[in-house]
Amino acid sequence: MQPSLSTLRTLHRHHLLFVPFENLSIHSGEKIILDICWIYEKIVLRSRGGFCFENNGLFLWVLQKLGYNPRVLSARVLNKQTGVYEHPFAHIILMVELDGRRWLCDVGFGEGITEPIPLEDEWEEEQDSGVYRVRVEADEWYLERKEEELWRTLYKFTLEERTFEDFREMCEYLQTSPKSFFVWKSFCSLQLPHGRLTYMGHRLISTEYTKGGGNVKTTRELNEEEIPDLLRQKFGIVLSGKLIPKDD
């Protein structure tokens, strides 16, 4: 199959619609291993999801097998609470060149882009999950999302090429450090055609996207006993270990 933009868009969208963004391994006694064979077995054969290293790692492998020649980049996520950018290797993203244009791909960021977005300064477009903008300052690129008529930076990155193995140390840190967001909270989130369904701690959050980048959220409190059935029914996930819900 010849690589094409239409196929890239379809692959990107379908990954998000069928593979959850989740960190349940961290809260059910399973170690996350930065290895494509292990990730494939977990996501494809066991019908699971993963966080950025797993989801974008699998997507990297798929694109390589289909002849897209993707490049691995690292991004610094902006912490909404502190206003500080996280470690450069705390988020992995991909870049694909097609027909003389560069495209940002990211299937591992939760409420991020649903389709590849061109890496062109001041490019703005509305997708199912919101309105996004790409801008560049010097050699740093910024991915931004419109929220209530204001632009919020999701993360920044450069075009310096990395390798998948460069993220091994940070993968270990994020699943073990008491300072890690992934250790504080247990979550599972899945993109829907016009919304998002998210389990977090003892809550189920339904998000409906509205025109222009808005959204409407509804929240339902959960007791611990109903969480396993909810994960199975809503996300298709059955854990091998006991989940310890967290939402610190």
Rank of each mutant, 00 (worst) to 15 (best):
38 W>T: 15
48 R>M: 08
42 K>G: 03
33 I>K: 05
42 K>P: 00
45 L>N: 13
37 C>E: 15
62 V>M: 14
29 G>E: 11
41 E>H: 13
45 L>A: 07
27 H>A: 04
43 I>S: 01
64 Q>T: 15
25 S>G: 14
55 N>P: 00
34 L>W: 03
63 L>S: 09
55 N>A: 08
54 E>N: 05
44 V>N: 09
40 Y>P: 03
24 L>I: 12
63 L>N: 05
61 W>G: 05
41 E>W: 08
41 E>G: 11
53 F>E: 04
61 W>L: 11
39 I>C: 01
52 C>R: 03
55 N>L: 13
28 S>H: 12
59 F>D: 01
50 G>K: 02
35 D>S: 11
64 Q>I: 12
37 C>G: 14
46 R>K: 15
36 I>G: 02
49 G>Y: 02
33 I>F: 03
58 L>C: 09
36 I>S: 07
33 I>Y: 02
56 N>F: 06
61 W>T: 13
43 I>G: 00
35 D>Y: 02
59 F>V: 02
36 I>C: 06
53 F>H: 07
37 C>R: 13
31 K>D: 13
51 F>L: 09
30 E>R: 15
29 G>T: 04
47 S>Y: 08
64 Q>H: 11
34 L>F: 06
51 F>Y: 15
50 G>C: 06
35 D>P: 06
32 I>V: 15
62 V>P: 02
62 V>Q: 12
40 Y>T: 15
25 S>P: 01
38 W>V: 14
63 L>H: 05
